[in-house]
Design a protein around this nucleic acid. Sequence first.
RNA 1: GGCGCGGUAGCCAAGUGGUAAGGCCGAGCUCUGCAAAAGCUCUAUUCGGCGGUUCGAUUCCGCCCCGCGCCUCCA
Length: 475
Amino acid sequence: MAIHLYDSLERKLKELQPAQPDGVFRFYNCGPTVYAPAHIGNFRTFVINDVLRRLLELEFGKDKVKHVRNLTDVDDRTIGQTQVEKRPLGEITEKWTDLFHADCAALNCLRPHHEPAATGYIKEQVNMIEVLMQKGHAYRAADGSVYFKVSSFADYGRLSRVKERELLVTDATADSDHKNSVSDFALWKAYKPEEDGDVKWPGPRGAAEGRPGWHIECSAMSKALLGDTIDLHTGGEDLEFPHHENEIAQSECCNGVPFSRHWYHSKHLLVDGTTMSKSRGNYYTLGDLTAKGYSAMAVRYALLMGHPRKQLNFTLNSLHAATEALEELALRRQALIQDLKADPSVPPSSRFNGALDALRNDLNVPAALGAIFSQFNQMKPSLGYSREQASADIAALDRVLLVLGVDLPAVLQHLADESAPTEAPTEITALADKRWAAKQAKDFAGADALRKELTAAGWAMLDGKNGYRLERLKG
RNA sequence: GGCGCGGUAGCCAAGUGGUAAGGCCGAGCUCUGCAAAAGCUCUAUUCGGCGGUUCGAUUCCGCCCCGCGCCUCCA
């Protein structure tokens, strides 16, 4: 079964295949703007793209996928942050890039093969703008900025059906600076000393010094790293318009060939049934969640619980469900291996092919998870489940979990860290010792009374054969 | 106003023209003095409402109600 993915441009499921004769699948995923910590909504998109990349690698081979994801390190927001923090742009973007990478690693996202930063490709962007100006698709405005002339590209609006829209004229659009038309968008922004600090580069021929507009970076970096026509371009639903619409216009007018053969947009994450916002108090970063004791792997799993093309409602409740589901999987896989002496390094069975096919079918992750559990629930060391079967089945499980990027050892590690004996205060250990003694003396009434005291004090006493463990009660 | 999406058990969430995956929560049982752990089992006659098409619709069509997202620099 081949991989089929919904194409936002043609609005139908299409098979994914590399176009180039080298058989390498080229895909570009719009990355973060590094001016603040990324939130879990951002990560839903990146995790989905990570699963897609892993699936492509399974399908075409590990060395047959080229994944590029950019870092937007110069734009209104990053520059705005230099004013807030009173630090140079580079320091700020480096700081947030580092955190982004740490979060990605914790979420078990593979590093893209290339992660170009916009400031590293100024020359390529300037070149592209110059070509667009030469071809009459762009013009210099009075202040030295350069704008793309939307009316020069007949196909404009095909992706987002923008022509069918009534553009809402906001202050931002009405304040068209020096644009000839509200639809035109900036390719190059002339330097404004009062806003831009020392952020500026020499501009395209005939333009003022300044900085690139947002959209051009993806066009230029995609061209530089993947070529004029790529196999797939992805991003969050919000990027469909104007960002991707503008990218198509720039790239196709510059290169004269189709920009991307396939477009894919994942839907946004909702939190508590509505869009995330700081004022609503439903805005989470990965750090916010891990600080509450949840594992990053559980967050990844929770972000994968819904279909990528449907808004997913994330709640602390669903994160708890994710945590429990993952632990169940990890613990039972481990128990199977131990009980049956299974060896997962054998060739995989076909047991989880249904889950894999669900992924190949438009990245239906929730269906895949359902298939995983219903199959996994049948892997019981009861009647006739042999070591050989278990080995091959677990190998198959591991393969599909690898595609999902679900790292079970990390789950077990988190579990171990969590239940590591926490230092109990001496009065608690004294109570526990007393209870243990009472129990040994078969004074069960006394033991129960002491357990109650411990519970009231917030501690659970877990009896073993030869001793006990104390665990802090949650909540 | 425009574009688009969705309403499936307490929560999250797949799905199909032929009669509802899965996870969480909850319940019962077994097993251990108790507790925990583990094991077993159960948990939507029903898919927002009303019509229509059909032998048959949650799945197709129409209308209505409700919710959500996006609409020039937010993944």
